[in-house]
Amino acid sequence: MKRQHSSHGGAHNSAESCIALIDARFLAWLQGQTEAAQDNTRQHLLTLLGHALVNNGLDLNLRRIYWYSDSAEDQVVDAQISRAVLPHSQDGGVSILRALGADLKRLAERQACEHILVGSDDERLLSLIDEAQLHGVAVHLLADEASRNMNQLQRDDPGWARLLSQADHRVVLGAQNLRDGAQPRHGNAAVHAAPAMDPEQLREQLNTVIQAWWADEPEDLREELREELHNTRGIPQEVDRQLLLGVRRVLERALSFQEKKLLREMVRDLVLGPQTPAANAAPQDDHMD
């Protein structure tokens, strides 16, 4: 029986097929959702992603979703296959990289579909995506609104920009997709404009999230991070994603561009300690981008 998708207005007799590989943790960051809200997302995920594809110019038959999560899955959702992975804090994302990467490789080698939609920001997928494309499969990546300005993104988050640049299409999961799709916890969660907030109150909220993250970091990872920050003006992609998600949960909104800058500066100050004027030059230059 041919699958129909109401958002496309009828049967997909001629539409090319697509299979989605979605990291639950990444999707939560993308939508600014709590873990509890993910239950609602899964029930509407096929519709949400279908709308996102159409709104980004891709009229495809989304046949199936593979869902990678470290949470116990007690839901059975049509056209979704759950893959259990270890928490990122335990293995740095290795288990999900292997699971999602293996599925991506098999789907491409077996030519199981013409298109694959990947929901992940792990730059280690770059070579696997390239290999799938060499097998003739179009690989698209879920992204946020920041991906609409790739020049700026390359300066702010070069790792994420490199991964997105490999995609055949960047599928932006913006506010319109959320309204049409999964009825998220916050109706305009993906909108990046933020309401005004007292600067001191904001700094206090950011500091709470940063301190909680730092307290959970083992000493060996702290040392690795210190070494890395001495050699770069940014902060590692995964740390950035983790903190942005934590702040979203506290503030119940996304951060503005300048607020993200402040967050990253506060992280550097905490990890590296008081900086000399020369050491602070790189973050100051970053404001000029």
Rank of each mutant, 00 (worst) to 15 (best):
G92F: 10
G92Y: 12
G92L: 11
G92A: 11
G92K: 10
V94S: 09
V94Y: 06
S95V: 04
S95T: 14
S95E: 08
S95A: 08
I96A: 12
I96L: 13
I96N: 08
R98T: 14
A99T: 04
A99Y: 04
A99V: 01
A99G: 03
A99D: 09
L100S: 03
L100C: 06
L100Q: 11
L100I: 03
G101V: 04
G101S: 06
G101R: 01
D103N: 15
D103T: 13
D103F: 05
L104P: 05
L104Q: 11
L104F: 08
L104S: 04
L104W: 12
K105R: 14
R106Y: 07
L107R: 10
A108M: 04
A108T: 02
A108L: 01
A108P: 00
R110A: 14
R110M: 13
R110Q: 14
Q111G: 13
Q111E: 15
Q111A: 15
A112Q: 10
E114I: 00
E114N: 10
H115R: 06
H115G: 09
H115N: 15
H115Y: 03
I116D: 00
I116E: 00
L117A: 04
L117E: 04
V118Q: 03
V118K: 01
V118S: 02
G119Y: 01
G119Q: 02
S120C: 12
S120L: 10
D121N: 13
D121K: 10
D121M: 12
D122I: 03
D122S: 03
D122H: 05
E123F: 09
E123K: 10
L125N: 02
L125G: 07
L125P: 01
L126M: 13
L126P: 02
L126Q: 13
L128C: 09
I129Y: 09
I129N: 01
I129G: 04
I129K: 05
D130M: 11
D130F: 09
D130G: 13
E131C: 02
E131M: 06
A132Q: 08
A132E: 03
Q133H: 07
L134P: 00
L134I: 08
H135G: 06
G136V: 08
G136Q: 09
G136K: 02
G136L: 11
V137A: 03
A138R: 14
V139K: 03
V139R: 02
L141T: 02
L142Q: 07
A143H: 10
A143D: 08
A143K: 02
D144K: 03
A146D: 15
A146K: 12
S147V: 10
S147I: 06
S147L: 06
S147K: 05
N149Q: 12
N149A: 12
N149M: 07
N151H: 12
N151A: 15
Q152Y: 06
L153H: 09
L153R: 15
Q154I: 08
Q154L: 11
Q154C: 13
R155C: 12
R155E: 11
D156H: 07
D156V: 06
